[in-house]
Write a protein that binds this DNA or RNA. Structure first.
Lengths: 227, 227
DNA sequence: GTTTTATAAATTGCATACAATTTATAAAAC
DNA sequence: GTTTTATAAATTGTATGCAATTTATAAAAC
């Protein structure tokens, strides 16, 4: 959702840009994504936008209503619970695999990401913080080396951002700075027990900050109500 | 890949039909999927076929080469190993959840599926057997109640069929009839230990039947495609 | 003032047309 | 006989046009 591009964008790139916008809470849950608007924003025809939206719908980030268009998904509380259950299952495995096979270069990438997170925090750029926090977990999955798990996390993390946008109880003061740091440190010293424990604690921390039993009202996105 | 339809097909339906064809080994790994051919086969325009192929590519069942078209994926041995690693992680969780929350109706659905598998076996319909074997695991995931895991398995099972098509050592005599039965029985009597053990054994059995270190030969039986 | 109905505008869903690219075929060169 | 080059056919990538549907606007009824 930026200025028009000079070079032609592939549909994956379009989908990625929209995903980033969702992760940064620039596109709130429930908002309608009008094809023509996106088409001119990205400087392509509706045909490509349509394919990108099809892709995002498959990921679950966008919901398609027949003849009514595409909307940023509003995950239900049940979906949120399922999502965290899945992450509790998968992320310990990711940690195990990272410890088992990460080389120095991988660790350097992780540490570099931590620096980027710290920078965003220092600058008080809340949107970038949220996106980078999600992308940390995606990077971890990437480093873990299993493409299927990497792909799964690449879907779950943006959805987690969406869930946070919907259910975050009145201004949780962003994620605590050092939980990611501690995880990477535990990984670096090959301490599997600790790393897994920290990861699970981190996930519990994120989930517990949510008010999943409160019906979210954010703004009223009428278009999504009559779905 | 059937006769032209009377009613308009949604892109998900098109994708599903192609998926079924892949699962039944009617579309072998590596084969090219020409858009125009599919369009006339399904009685729709290339626009919709393109969206369906985009979807299947996202699932990993189809691989897109720029300007060259869509091909049924030929999973590498490494991908195959990652896939089974993922299934070993996820399917015990599925079993746990099914035992925890399956009602009588769910069990009935599972048993009904076992009957369908037995029928296919009795009729010696090898293609249906392979597809139904994969779909058993998808059904289990569906019954487990976690949509994210359901979706993951809906991707991994067709890919598993593809891997079997590529790496199956010279004529493994199909899956043993009763491994699925035993799993359902263990689930029915709420025996978590046994059910998980049987599931892992089942997965090991499938994987061990593969020749993942042999470079697969590509031979497409064109005549059998539309049978 | 609210609800209902009619009309116009906006938007989606789909097919088609056309340029860009790749693949197949045939002729020429070696 | 094989390789190379040139030409034609097939196929993909993209935009655009139009029918179908939904949404917005305004007038009428209550």
């Amino acid at each position: 959702m930026d200025a028009a591009p000079t070079t032609k964008l592939a549909i994956e790139q379009i989908a990625e840009r929209i995903t980033d916008a969702v992760m940064e809470h620039r596109l709130p849950p429930g908002i309608k994504l009008v094809e023509e608007k996106l088409a001119s924003a990205f400087g392509v025809s509706r045909t490509k936008i349509r394919q990108a939206l099809t892709l995002l719908a498959k990921e679950g980030l966008v919901t398609l209503h027949a003849n009514r268009g595409a909307f940023v998904t509003r995950p239900s509380a049940a979906q949120a619970r399922d999502l965290f259950a899945t992450r509790r299952l998968v992320e310990p495995e990711i940690v195990r695999n990272v410890i088992a096979r990460a080389c120095e270069h991988d660790l350097a990438r992780l540490r570099q990401h931590l620096v980027a997170e710290a920078d965003a925090r220092k600058e008080g750029d809340r949107r970038r913080i949220i996106r980078l926090s999600g992308q940390f977990h995606m990077l971890l999955a990437e480093v873990s080396g299993n493409k299927f798990i990497e792909k799964l996390m690449a879907e779950l993390c943006p959805l987690t951002c969406l869930i946070i946008a919907l259910y975050d109880s009145p201004h949780t003061p962003a994620c605590p700075d050092d939980e990611h740091n501690q995880i990477v440190e535990a990984i670096a010293r090959q301490d599997q027990e600790a790393a897994i424990h920290l990861m699970l604690h981190h996930l519990a921390h994120i989930e517990s900050a949510l008010a999943l039993d409160v019906v979210p009202e954010l703004d009223i996105h009428w278009e999504a109500l009559y779905g």
